[in-house]
Nucleic acid binder design. Structure first.
Length: 455
RNA sequence: GGCCCCAUCGUCUAGCCUGGUCCAGGACGGAUGGUUCUCAGCCAUUAAACACCGGUUCAAAUCCGGUUGGGGCUACCA
């Protein structure tokens, strides 16, 4: 039988780490089993569902690379849910009831009384009679789990406004969409017996269940708007690489065994085993994501990074997107690749001196350029001017020759030159900086610090 | 409260099913040192955990029970 899984987000919020990890594991399972990945939008709550959330979810899923084979919206399937609810009423397995008052206890014996003979449609809910029995299932990750349904009260299937409840729509859809494996968060374990009851009442075949451990916020408790539930789109905007984020997600609750950390998606598809997913909730630690992202950044193709970085630079008016030196930007990227945590970082680090001229900060000026270095800078520029190959080794050779001639330590001159050139005390190796800056920029910036004594 | 799930370094985890090879391994983060220029990177070294109590056994991180702790559900939200 063809494996079919689904990811069923509700567009009442952005896609965050937790949701995308669920999506990843579903997608991965489908890929590893040569099955299909269905995306189902659970937008039954018209009030809370927002188009902007839907758009963000779709965009983020696409960005992460989780292509879906089919897409459904529950809001377009209300008639279907009512049809199945009617079947249950006709079979005597469910009943209709007026809306319960907020304080009213949902006592099943009394609520049944007023249910009969009422015409359907106007303000009546359909409620499942919950029989007393055991509801058991064998979870792919956790093994056998059993509930006593005596603790479950009668379940609303269709609300009095005619819309289905989550559990009902979920079961109808999973059955109709021929979902073979329901892979979802831990928080749905206690929904499962309620859903099993619906499958049984309707005589529908049950899928296999696999409940993923939850991802917890650093402060404890589940991820929420206030606690660590950063939208995936924010990671994208900050300049994280999707493959790095996926790698990070992959390791949250699953491990291939052994010491593997950096695992590409192709390999992940080969190695993934749903039965080896952890049972333990994982606490979200962005620090590890940053490390993984840096690993991918170091290995990334500078040209591809440029595609991502150019719009950011243009957005900050650091370059004119229609007229800029792409080769220059690419050479900057090569210089900063290993130094970036995420792509957005590049903009912060490189802009102030590579893409625009910025005055040296006062305290650094005092410390490194307080003393007159006109002679040293002048001699260095003369040497650079003679260079035909303006590359780091050649520049370094000239520099070393100069300090030998002046009989000073290299660092006595390296730091002042870096500050004069970049306005910063830290940065890439000086000779690489000079090579990237080029002869002309170097000359202009160093000349500013040369006092014309004989003028 | 009731029901359910879970429990290895600060964090992600390997090992647990098929007890001995584990005085518990890796990674992130931390600390220290190295890299004839800083930062990043890289390299090396280092601190750091089997929640607790019982039981089974010649032997338990590994099996069983309890306690404690954490999490989830308990809506005409999803």
């Amino acid at each position: 039988m063809m494996v079919r899984v689904r990811f069923a987000p509700s567009p009442t919020g952005f896609l965050h780490i937790g949701g995308s990890r669920t999506a990843l594991f579903n997608w991965l399972y489908a890929r590893s089993q040569k099955g299909e990945f269905i995306l189902r939008i659970e937008d039954t709550d018209a009030l809370r569902s927002k188009k902007e959330y839907l758009d963000e979810i779709l965009t983020s899923l696409t960005w992460l690379g989780f292509r879906w084979d089919e897409l459904y919206h529950q809001s377009e399937r209300f008639a279907l849910y009512r049809e199945y609810a009617d079947k249950l009423v006709a079979a005597g397995k469910a009943y209709r009831a007026e809306k319960l008052a907020p304080e009213e206890s949902p006592d099943l014996q009394t609520s049944e009384a007023g249910a009969k003979a009422q015409p359907r449609g106007t303000g009546q809910a359909v409620i499942l009679k919950v029989p007393q029995q055991k509801a058991a299932f064998d979870d792919l990750i956790r093994g056998p789990i059993e509930f006593d349904t005596a603790v479950i009260k009668d379940q609303v299937l269709i609300k009095s406004d005619g819309t289905p409840t989550y559990n009902f729509a979920c079961v109808i859809d999973d059955a109709l969409m021929k979902i073979t494996h329901v892979i979802r968060g831990d928080d749905h374990i206690s929904n499962t017996p309620k859903q099993i009851l619906i499958y049984e009442a309707l005589g529908l075949a049950m899928p296999q269940f696999a409940h993923l451990p939850l991802i917890l916020a650093k402060e404890g408790g589940r991820l929420s708007k206030r606690k660590g539930a950063t939208a995936i789109s924010e990671f994208r905007e900050a300049g994280y690489l999707p493959e790095a984020l996926v790698n990070f997600l992959l390791l949250l609750g699953w491990s291939p065994g052994g010491d593997r950390e950096i695992i590409g998606i192709t390999e992940a598809i080969e190695l993934f085993d749903i039965r080896k997913v952890n049972k333990t909730a994982a606490v979200l630690d962005i620090g590890k994501l940053n490390w993984i992202n840096n690993e991918y950044l170091k290995a990334a193709d500078p040209e591809k990074l440029a595609d991502q970085i150019v719009p950011l630079l243009a957005g900050k008016q650091l370059i004119d997107k229609d007229n800029f030196d792409r080769n220059y930007v690419v050479s900057l990227i090569k210089l900063f690749q290993a130094r970036m945590t995420f792509v957005g970082d590049f903009v912060e680090r490189a802009d102030t001196f590579f893409l625009q001229d910025v005055p040296v900060e006062t305290k650094d000026k005092e410390k490194f350029l307080g003393k007159d270095l006109s002679k040293e800078f002048g001699l260095f520029l003369e040497r650079l001017a003679r260079l035909n190959n303006f590359d780091p080794p050649a520049i370094e050779a000239e520099f070393r020759a100069l300090v030998a001639e002046l009989n000073i330590q290299a660092k006595e001159l390296i730091h002042p030159i870096r500050v004069a050139l970049t306005g910063k005390t830290v940065g890439p190796g000086l000779f690489e900086v000079i090579a990237v800056l080029g002869k002309e920029r170097t000359r202009l910036r160093l000349s500013k610090w040369i006092k014309k004594e004989n003028g």
